[in-house]
Amino acid sequence: MTLSLTLKSRPPFRLDMSRVVPHLLQGLSARALARLDVTTIRVPVPLGDWFKITGTPGSDLVICDACAQLDQVGAALQDGNIVVAGDVGRCAGAGMTGGHITVHGHVGSYAGAMMRGGTLDIMGNAGDHLAGATVGAVDGMVGGALQVRGSAGAWAADRMRGGMIVINGDAGPQAGSRLGGGTLMVCGKAGPEAGVMMRRGTLYLNEAEPLPLGFVDCGTPDLVFHKWLAHQLQPYGRSAVALARARLRRYQGDMADLGKGEIFLCAT
């Protein structure tokens, strides 16, 4: 069963979609759905005021004509599928533990922040703090898989501790900063300070601004693992596969911290 929400027009304020996830919608009547509060302003804003609602709540949710005013889309998703046509705002898929989210558009900051499981697939670009940690949280993403077909902003994979991220385009400054585990792959170019204060975990970068001084060159090891990885990466597109197959130079760091992380950078 699928529930479809179509945004009627772009709201002049942000909407909080955190209550609009499949496991919270089960069994709600059309009336109850229309009344769901999505306000971020002083007065209550019911879902039905801004969305045309069709279908029946079930495991699948489709959001059409979405825009960057929609925050928390798919946040804390447990299972089921969410497909979004259009852009979304902050915290898309944040804290999700399972299920699948596909956004056919751009996402704002903190997409996939602190996610623990499931898959988040972003066809467009991502904002800052992709898979990061919201304020006060010690860890960012700890599990699951995340792909950005476009580019990501600053702080991608900040404080990540587990899981897999592929960015097919570029990443902004501080990609993989404070990384404690997991893997981030940037198939385009990473901005300055990639991997800064990284403790453990792995970055694959096709191209990068000069790495922080805490990364030391460890040569170009020929790792069988990368051949296996390239195979596994086929669903993530040719650029990901090509990066895993490329001749990679290994850097260890960040020596300012624990220094047990590694960056594989395409050797030119």
């Binding site: 300070e193 800064v196 204060m197 790495l211 922080p212 001084l213 805490g214 990364f215 030391v216 060159d217 960040d254 020596m255 300012a256 911290d257 220094g259």
Partner: peptide, 26 residues
Amino acid sequence: GLSPLALVSLLSARAQGHRVNALQAT
């Protein structure tokens, strides 16, 4: 030529006796 972050990183690494990638003068 060092950002504040790079400066602190340099000091942290050297305080632990870790190698870093920097000019000899630095």
